[in-house]
Design a protein around this nucleic acid. Sequence first.
DNA 1: CATGGGATTGACT
DNA 2: GTCAATCCCATGC
Length: 200
Amino acid sequence: MRALGPEFYARPVLEVARELIGCTVEHDGAAGVIVETEAYHESEPACHAFSGLTPRTSTLFGPPGRAYVYRSYGIHAMLNAVCEPAGVAAAVLIRALEPTVGLAAMRARRRRVGDPASDGRRSSDVDLCSGPGKLTQALGISLRDNGGDLRVGPVRIFARPADRPAPELALGTRIGITKAVELSWRFCLAGNPNVSRPRL
DNA sequence: CATGGGATTGACT
DNA sequence: GTCAATCCCATGC
């Protein structure tokens, strides 16, 4: 498998968001195929970089092909791929994966600590990575991964195998935002059960 | 320096 | 369907 480099990400963010569907995210021995993404761009108010360069958004304004990881609701880490040329702030939020490698490690990291009653209660493995906070927990991705090179790691993204046809996509509006809610900048692998709710 | 608000999730009614 | 948890950081005095 080939890790994607800056030339892949240094393009319009909507294009990258579409083409990341079917690619593979890997970290610390666990991996999954991307089945859901959202695009964010400095020109629209839902993007963290809308109000300019701050310490928090510096990764977004930096070179493409890096990880932008931030904390949401004080609890969850969110994984994004920085896109467009350096100086233009844009990123693709990775929202859901189909788990492929390291399922046991994912289950262990997703198991709630200090709650033995929850062991074995998981309905199925679609709960492992079916949301942006879930997949970072399952893969062990944390804020320390912010700014890391997605070609080199520790978090890496690999190209979709060239011998397979482009997947059929469904698109809709982005989830959990209060501004620019009308933009259809969410992309899903049509019919995949690992997509987060609401399904498209 | 104090305050307020999330690109969410899981537990509960 | 409702709701709390929890922390980083942007903003404003």
